Amino acid sequence: MLTRRLLLAAALAALAMPAAAEEPPIFAASELAIRGYDPVAYFTEGKPVEGSAAHQLMWMGATWRFASAANRDRFERNPQKFAPQYGGYCAYAASQGYVAPTDPAAFTVHDGKLYLNYSQRIRRTWEKDIPGHVSAANANWPKPLKK
């Protein structure tokens, strides 16, 4: 009888505990992916370009903005090609097993994929071993979202 009471008490205690926090799959400051920058422009312009509310769409629970309707349409046809890796969270942080926000200017396009970092300083660390960091981040992802 005592064992049954202990099991019941443990079960009730587990139900009363708050659920572990889970990060959304896409890093979106103020609900805007990449802080409102156009993901396609990183590939076509080679730099961050601000998107416009006139050219936006919802994907993976976040609002994505684009500099033009053509860029929006390209993204819509193949979002996996243009969306930043690791949901737009810091790629270096993902390689280390955690999540961090990103600066749209701290980016790298490597092997046809967009990687964002927390800052220019972190980007320099990332660039010292991109293949190694990508391998580590791929092995970790998406576990850091569940912490």
Rank of each mutant, 00 (worst) to 15 (best):
A11V: 12
H110D: 12
W64N: 11
P79V: 01
G51Q: 09
F66M: 05
A21E: 14
F107P: 07
A106H: 04
S135G: 02
K146W: 00
T63Y: 07
A137S: 00
A100M: 06
G36W: 10
M60T: 12
G51M: 06
R72F: 09
A139S: 02
M17K: 10
K147L: 02
A70K: 05
N71W: 03
V49S: 04
P84V: 07
T63L: 10
S119T: 14
A41Y: 07
A10V: 13
A93W: 12
G88K: 00
A16T: 13
E23Y: 09
A13V: 15
M60N: 14
F66V: 01
Y37C: 00
K146C: 04
A13S: 15
A70Q: 07
W126H: 07
Q85P: 08
P39S: 01
A94S: 06
D38Q: 01
L57K: 01
W59N: 08
Y92P: 05
A94L: 08
E127A: 06
Q85I: 02
K147F: 07
V49H: 09
Q56D: 13
M60E: 15
N140F: 08
W59V: 07
Q80C: 01
Y86T: 02
K128Y: 00
A41T: 09
Y37S: 03
V134K: 02
L145I: 00
P101V: 08
K113A: 10
Q96V: 14
W141S: 00
Q96D: 10
P142N: 03
C90I: 08
Q120N: 13
P101C: 04
N71L: 07
L32C: 03
P104V: 04
A29D: 03
A93V: 10
R72G: 12
M58I: 11
L7A: 15
Y37H: 11
F82W: 15
E23H: 14
T3E: 15
L145M: 10
A20E: 06
K128F: 02
K147V: 05
R4P: 05
R65T: 09
Y115I: 09
A28C: 07
W141Y: 10
F66C: 01
K146Y: 10
K81M: 10
